[in-house]
Design a binder for these strands. Structure first.
Lengths: 230, 230
DNA sequence: ATTGAGTTGTCACAGGATTGTCACTTGATT
DNA sequence: AATCAAGTGACAATCCTGTGACAACTCAAT
């Protein structure tokens, strides 16, 4: 048995397509026609992934997504939506969605993304958290702790932090950060970057005035280093 | 030298815009009006990135993309297309395209995506640390060491150093250095160059008074040599 | 060899550019 | 309403760059 996928979608034709798609690949499928029903099924069972339509009768898909992530954040949620609904990818991050596919979608793409999400979380579960210094970070659950105490980070801060962790040692210019973290269609001033760095330092550095991990490289940008090595 | 970008696009107006966009950023641009021509240019030269229109006369842009990826997959391809053409994103992945921008596109976004793609491939392929004598330099991290000890260099010094490393043995006049390193819009006095050379010598030469690598050519400029050969 | 004009090495300092930090506005969400 | 995150602008602190002065040097003509 490959696993179980929970489909929450009101259009019966799409449900039919999805059921055939996933069962053909060896997955078990449970389907719900409303957000309420989807949430109940989510709580009552242990899906390996959720395919969720954002447009649902009754309860908004966004609410459903948030509720699911609140309950068990490690279960990947792939959002299904019209293009206009995901113009802002940051929104999806705030919802906690792991990936999204726009309608009209290619069944093959959806399948690929669902499988990729399942692989990712399996990997994440086995190696639960990244970290540096006395900071521990769990991106799957969007949780962070410093010296054992929980730290609250916003969606943007997580995204920025992740990019730093993925590119240690390298000097990242403000433009590069704006493009990769804020997105290509957003053009805030470069001061915004400094501000977010400030936030990260205040929350994650032992001594924010003398940053050890989030270092500034004058005239170039910022650099993340795991620890002080002499 | 920033690199070369191959533009394959049949609309001359767009070509003109792209040429201006990339040359303004310091890239060299080669352009092809048809898919066949683009492929030939791709094979005959070594572009750092390709901007490819999907709608081309003669040969389909998809075929071109596939052929390029078959030949040298490490060269990033950024696809330019109308929205309807990329409704199916999985297609782009099958083609092997690295990224895409939909028409009508924002020049700034395209530039950002191309640069990001180039950075990614550079990161993935290799980052051979340059060096000379007992000096090791990592430009991506903006770190340098001499005899194992870390040396702090400013952003400007790195830029100058890189230009020297890219043009070894050649005599570089002060004017050339000012244009290439300081930029075409800055006109400091030529004494500024001497000063920066002094800094490089003090930081990187074993004996700053008798420079081995950063040699002055009286009445002409400076020359960089990797090592002393007897 | 000597001389002198032109060129370069070196230093210190002022001005400018970059960044840290805070307070405020705006817009979204509750 | 109230709260929160994000972006912007202002100010101060900090660092760097460019400039000028003078000494040392190079080269060529005498």
């Amino acid at each position: 048995m490959m696993g179980m996928i929970l489909v929450t979608e009101d259009d019966p034709r799409i449900v039919k397509v999805l059921v055939r798609l996933f069962t053909a690949e060896g997955y078990e499928v449970k389907s719900a026609g409303t957000g309420k029903e989807g949430l109940e099924l989510f709580e009552a069972s242990t899906p390996d992934a959720v395919v969720l339509d954002l447009m649902l009768p009754g309860m908004s898909g966004r609410e459903v997504c948030k509720a699911m992530k609140m309950s068990r954040p490690e279960v990947p949620v792939i959002v299904l939506s019209a293009i206009s609904e995901v113009a802002d990818k940051v929104l999806l991050l705030e919802l906690g969605a792991d990936d999204y596919v726009t309608k009209p979608f290619s069944p093959r793409e959806l399948l690929a993304r669902v499988q990729a999400a399942i692989r990712r979380t399996r990997r994440a579960v086995s190696r639960p958290a990244a970290g540096f210094g006395d900071v521990q970070i769990d991106f799957a659950c969007m949780k962070a702790t410093r010296a054992g105490k929980p730290i609250t980070l916003t969606a943007h801060e997580f995204k920025l932090l992740r990019f730093f962790l993925e590119n240690p040692e390298r000097v990242l210019s403000r433009d590069e950060l704006l493009n990769e973290v804020w997105g290509y269609n957003a053009y805030p001033s470069t001061r915004t970057v400094d501000n977010q760095i400030l936030k990260l330092r205040q929350k994650l550095e032992e001594n924010p005035a003398n940053p050890i991990h989030f270092c500034t490289v004058y005239g170039a940008g910022y650099r993340f280093v795991h620890a002080t090595q002499e």
